[in-house]
């Protein structure tokens, strides 16, 4: 998929003084909101969009700071802001019966939405949550543990990757089970979207993001413990960031959730195993 082609599919929507890129396809009563991960963009979902839009109204957005959306250069756009933007966008688009799919970075956004829902402070209702290869960690509680925090590991890797295109091209393949699962064309498209609006200069805010995750961890953990929204955790079995044990642990703590593994699959199930991904969403 060329980035130009992808851009034509969507539109720019003005939400809370920022421009957000949104793709809105299909006309079912049921809505599927697909959210992308850190240092990538909506284009991750290009393989699954045509099939899923037969069953759902599919809404894919680029978060502020990613893809075609605005990239504010002078400050860290935090999770709470991202959540506020999402909620406002859904209100503008008048979405109903939302199934929320969060990948990687957007796990935290999904948890924040669930928390607001738990406290009954928002009008919008999320019917179902799907968490894809998250980067949630359970070591936030264990302050005595010296080992490097999983998020920090991820952060170091990403920062190294984003140094140059050749580095990126080399390292992005580590996230897949089979190195040839991602084509050069796809890597190029992802890179272009990172570079767009000089996004690479502002992308190094992972340390702030880690701090924020630590600060709000208890808040989200409380939500996991009393969750009533049906949830599904889908995880590639060979993910280098979020391994099998972490995923199992996550589903144990996440009340009302089911766990679904995809075999021979890395961090990006929607790119590597699109059929399995679609099956696990629809079923």
């Amino acid at each position: 998929m060329e980035t130009k082609e992808w851009a034509q599919k969507g539109k720019m929507v003005s939400v809370l003084n920022t421009k957000v890129f949104v793709i809105d396809e299909g006309n079912s009563e049921e809505t599927l909101v697909l959210q992308h991960g850190y240092a990538t963009s909506s284009i991750d979902y290009y393989k699954v969009l045509p099939e899923l839009s037969k069953y759902y109204r599919v809404v894919i957005q680029d978060f502020v700071g990613f893809g075609f959306s605005d990239k504010p250069s002078n400050y860290y756009f935090n999770i709470l802001q991202q959540t506020d933007v999402c909620l406002e966008l859904w209100r503008i688009l008048d979405l109903k019966n939302i199934t929320l799919v969060g990948h990687n970075y957007s796990t935290q956004i999904a948890l924040e939405v669930l928390t607001r829902q738990r406290t009954k402070l928002i009008q919008i209702e999320v019917k179902k949550v799907v968490i894809l290869n998250s980067i949630i960690s359970f070591d936030h509680n264990n302050l005595d543990k010296v080992s490097l925090h999983p998020l920090e590991q991820f952060s170091n890797k990403i920062l190294l990757m984003l140094n140059s295109f050749s580095f990126y091209k080399m390292k992005i393949k580590d996230f897949f089970y089979e190195n040839n699962s991602i084509s050069d064309e796809e890597i190029k498209a992802k890179w272009i979207l990172i570079e767009h609006k000089s996004g690479r200069e502002i992308i190094d805010y992972l340390p702030s993001y880690i701090t924020e995750s630590k600060l709000l961890w208890r808040r989200w953990f409380n939500t996991l413990q009393v969750n009533t929204t049906p949830a599904k955790i889908i995880s590639g079995k060979n993910d280098i960031i979020f391994n099998e044990n972490e995923a199992t642990r996550f589903s144990e703590e996440f009340k009302n959730s089911t766990l679904h593994f995809i075999d021979n699959c890395g961090h990006y199930p929607m790119l590597e195993k699109p059929e399995d991904f679609i099956q696990s969403i629809i079923s």
Partner: peptide, 9 residues
């Protein structure tokens, strides 16, 4: 902040 973002009735 939430009031500005239309999140509080």
């Amino acid at each position: 902040a939430r009031k500005n973002h239309n999140l509080i009735p």
